[in-house]
């Protein structure tokens, strides 16, 4: 593995934030946030198993403004982690290590994550407002 020409010990106070370093830390942050999202899913499923009163309470929370905000952030984190995870897998397979490629794939990842999040929520809005 080549180790020259790369920044060592990125002390966050010293280094200027760059797309590359910010995206890298975001993968970790979204990973942790997704654990909370997964727990939310488990909570919802357990509520459905427990009974109608508990389920309705959970459902009421999830459809409140706070709940919708949380679900929206969950979608953003999920799409980011999904796309950037695939970017990681390309690196693991040995592709995209040139610095310009790292930047290019970074922007592509961000764009696709924004696109997927938007598509998801456009569908949510269309389906929720037309069917009910």
């Amino acid at each position: 593995m080549k180790t020259h020409n790369r920044p060592l010990s990125p002390h966050l106070q010293i280094y200027k934030p760059q797309l590359t370093s910010v995206m890298s830390i975001c993968h970790r942050a979204t990973g942790v946030a997704l654990v909370a999202g997964a727990l939310l899913l488990v909570w919802w499923v357990i509520a459905a198993a427990v009974g109608p009163e508990v389920f309705d309470k959970v459902q009421k929370f999830l459809t409140s403004w706070l709940g919708i905000l949380i679900l929206f952030i969950f979608t953003c984190t999920l799409m980011y982690h999904l796309c950037n995870g695939i970017r990681h897998l390309f690196w693991d397979a040995g592709y995209g290590f040139r610095l310009e490629d790292v930047y290019k794939s970074g922007w592509i990842t961000l764009s696709i994550a924004v696109l997927l999040t938007s598509i998801t929520w456009i569908f949510v809005i269309i389906l929720r407002t037309t069917v009910i």
């Binding site: 389920f55 569908f123 929720r128």
Partner: peptide, 8 residues
């Protein structure tokens, strides 16, 4: 997303 009705 396709689950349009989400009652119990």
């Amino acid at each position: 997303v396709s689950l349009t009705k989400m009652d119990y």
